[in-house]
Design a protein around this nucleic acid. Sequence first.
DNA 1: TTCCAGGCGTATC
DNA 2: GATACGCATGGA
Length: 254
Amino acid sequence: MSNKIFISISKEYCDLQQIYDSGQCFTWDKTEEGQFCIRYKNTLYYVSQTEDGLSIISDDEDTEQKMIYYFDLNTNYQEIQKLADDDKYLKTCIEKSKGLRILKQDLWETMLCFLISQNNNIPRIKKSVGKIIDLFDGFPSPEQLQTVEQLKECGLGYRDKYLIAAARQFPSVQNQLETGSYEENRKTLMTFLGIGPKVADCICLFALHHIDAFPIDTHIKKIMASEYPEGLPEKYKSYAGILQQYMFYNDLRR
DNA sequence: TTCCAGGCGTATC
DNA sequence: GATACGCATGGA
């Protein structure tokens, strides 16, 4: 661990604890000192937060650029939050989660995590992903994943076969996914065994950064029924993924 | 014991 | 296209 860098960003606009609790990343660990250990493309970044920035230690020589990208620090979330100024419900959500950001996570790693997420809960998803990382000393490459037997100890239940099938299919569509539009990528992802509309949208949002993707899970379904029975307002559509995350976080915290 | 979790595949109509 | 049902697992 050689490199130590500092990125200046107010905690108000990038809150690691909020992101940690937001259900978009399942591989962060938190140390007793409150430091976050972040795994991105199988490299570890130890991140400490102060009121005015992030101190990051890693052996990656390109830590600063990678973390600016990963945390999407060139996007102005305050501007997007203003969209909700006349929306009492969403405004209340945002007040409690201003520091959330949509991470730009690794595509393959994110696919594995969200294949596991279906009909599952966040602590159990984290546990299963952690077991995979222990077993393979990091996320396995598609080539390393061959049989369901390899995953038996990871507590995946019936989802183990989805990961194996994905490992076989992924290399043939990786390029296409990294350059495609939201609509194209959503369709492509849904050809994978175990990926339906919701998981496809999570991958589109949390890895491919299609911020108009709007994953509808049990929480969001409930929120839509009670807060937006007429559907999501049109002005939200281009940023639906980000706004969805404020609602989801707020519902989780209750 | 039953219910639930960042749902999806399959069968059936 | 819509709806009903089963599904591994573990915590509440």
